[in-house]
């Protein structure tokens, strides 16, 4: 199987603080890979590095064997990598429909067009409608995103992330702050929407992680201390000691 994302000796320092230390990680095409670790381990920083929000201090990041580290976020996105945010990051004053449509426009090739009526683009309408249905927000279509409930905003966040059709998806704590029922629904949604795509997910909820992931990597103090299948991670003494504790027993 070919690799979707590969990190080679990636380091990130802020001043003298080293946040990511010599991380090597490889995610295969079509794999669901979870990244876990205690708070402050550098999971979100790693996402920021992969998605181009930050540049690594040392090392390189490859997307399908092409170096992407150093590229701005929008160019990485155009190459087929899309991410969500831990803190909901939507277009608050625009409606749900418009939010999703914004995420579809570049991928459908309309770019900076100022000579086309945005309401008259059939493929944009089709795709936006499809995503809207996928994330179960059809009834909230015309509501400004800022007025949605928290769980709905999280669903929209995932919708925006996948709408462009990227085949490598990064989700940063998609179920954080959700009730148990909401989490179950969100996981089903994620499972369905990332079918056939590569998923890298940061998650704190261990039932989500072990239910969803094909492989798991554990990040502690900016270093990956273990990488493997859920069974391997469960049985790894180093992981137990550093992070999982009694939780997985």
């Amino acid at each position: 199987m070919s690799t979707a994302i590969e990190l080679r000796g990636v380091e990130k320092t802020f001043g003298i603080t080293s946040v990511i230390r010599n991380v090597n990680l490889s995610v295969a095409q079509g794999e669901r890979h979870a990244l876990i670790g205690p708070n402050g381990a550098g999971k979100s920083t790693l996402f920021n590095l992969i998605s181009g929000y930050m540049k690594p201090s040392v090392g390189s990041i490859l997307l399908r064997d092409e170096v992407i580290s150093g590229l701005p976020p929008f160019q990485i996105n155009r190459r087929g990598l899309s991410r969500s945010f831990q803190v909901t990051n939507v277009f608050a004053k625009m409606t749900v429909w418009e939010n999703l449509r914004c995420a579809v426009l570049w991928a459908t090739g309309h770019r900076y067009a100022f000579w086309k009526n945005v309401d008259n683009l059939p493929e944009v309408r089709d795709r936006t409608a499809q995503i809207l249905q996928d994330i179960n927000l059809v009834s909230r279509r015309d509501v400004p995103a800022g007025l949605l409930t928290y769980a709905e905003q999280r669903a929209l966040e995932i919708g925006i992330t996948i709408a462009g059709g990227a085949d490598v998806i990064l989700l940063d704590e998609p179920t954080a702050g959700m009730s148990h029922a909401e989490t179950e629904r969100a996981v089903a949604l994620i499972r369905r929407l990332t079918e056939g795509r590569t998923l890298l997910i940061v998650e704190h909820d261990m039932s989500v992680v072990f239910g969803l992931a094909d492989r798991i990597s554990v990040l502690v103090y900016g270093q990956i201390i273990a990488s493997g299948t859920p069974e391997e991670i469960r049985g790894n003494p180093k992981v137990k000691e550093a992070y999982l504790g009694e939780e997985v027993a």
């Binding site: 998605s51 181009g52 701005p72 976020p73 929008f74 996105n77 899309s82 991410r83 945010f85 990051n89 939507v90 277009f91 608050a92 004053k93 625009m94 418009e98 449509r101 914004c102 995420a103 426009l105 570049w106 309309h110 770019r111 900076y112 067009a113 100022f114 000579w115 086309k116 009526n117 945005v118 683009l121 925006i160 992330t161 709408a163 462009g164």
Partner: peptide, 20 residues
């Protein structure tokens, strides 16, 4: 137009625009 809609998106959240 698509540009006009993306202008609104930039107004609301320039950071997120980069990731679409």
């Amino acid at each position: 137009t698509p540009l006009g809609r993306m202008c609104n998106a930039v107004r609301d959240n320039p950071e997120r625009v980069q990731f679409v």
